[in-house]
Amino acid sequence: MNSTLLNTGWPMWVMLAIVVGATGIITSRFLDLSAKKIFSAAGRALIQLILIALIISQVSTSWILTIALLLLMLGVAVFTSTQRIETVRWWVPASVIFGGVAPVVELMFGFGVLPVTPLAVIAVIGQLIGGTMSATNLAGRRIEQELSQRAGEVEAALALGFPENAARNLVGRPVAAEALLPGLDQTRTVGTVTLPGAFVGLVLGGASPLEAGLVQLVVLINLLAVQAIAVSLLAMMIERKIGVRA
């Protein structure tokens, strides 16, 4: 009987070494991105995935450890966003990531969609935190760049009598929406262009394609929602200079 799981034997390691090496060469030669960053990212991914697999195997029987792991995920996401968005204090990304994820997770629990089990909670909430972090980083950096490059337009709006937050809104809000485009495109093209990770993982794990598709639908819709909430909150806070470094 053929297994639906991917082959993780030695050929996989050879293939990954070739792919990572080729990616490093391409990015360093054609995209002005150091190959070292590609190798570092791949190495960190390997170490972190091994560690998280070992950790999850232990925390799946303890709610205390489950909550601790989720807090660690949130902390790493906040730290990463604070590094990416240089003009805001750490509690700004903390607020918007938590503010985006919390209400959606509450709805999932309220309607009984998300099982109250450690593994399900870690898998779903972890994915929501990661997706929200990515959108937050992209939105924050784009707003920063736009406000810096188009400072004259902000000053012109102020001269015309606009409140400061409204003047900054005119420049920052349109580009903030760009952070939602990757998630929006993925949702619109799912099943036709892309087969996302949750769907593929469930099918490989033995779930029926229909069950996998419904689970993926829940993940995509909720991910789009948390990203929209987080990006909106971030744009509002930056426009009003809440938590923005002088």
Rank of each mutant, 00 (worst) to 15 (best):
A177W: 11
V121A: 05
A151P: 01
G75P: 08
G110A: 11
F111M: 11
L170I: 06
L181T: 09
I97H: 11
V101M: 05
M108R: 02
A156H: 11
E146G: 01
S95L: 15
I122G: 05
I85H: 00
L74E: 07
A123W: 02
A167H: 07
V76K: 03
V171T: 11
I143P: 01
G172C: 05
G99D: 11
I129N: 02
E153H: 10
P174A: 10
F162Q: 14
A151G: 15
N169M: 13
R89T: 13
G126H: 05
P103M: 10
T132M: 04
Q149S: 11
A159C: 10
S81C: 12
V101P: 05
I97D: 08
P93K: 01
I85K: 00
A177Q: 13
E155H: 12
A166V: 12
P174W: 09
G130W: 08
G152I: 09
G183I: 00
A139D: 01
E144S: 03
I143V: 08
A157W: 08
A151R: 14
V121N: 04
R141T: 14
S134A: 15
A94W: 03
I129W: 02
M73I: 09
V101E: 03
L147M: 06
M108C: 12
I122D: 04
T87H: 08
P115V: 04
R150E: 09
L114R: 05
V96M: 14
V96D: 08
V113W: 14
E155L: 14
L180I: 06
V96T: 15
L158V: 09
L181V: 15
V175E: 03
N169P: 03
A77S: 14
N165R: 14
R89I: 02
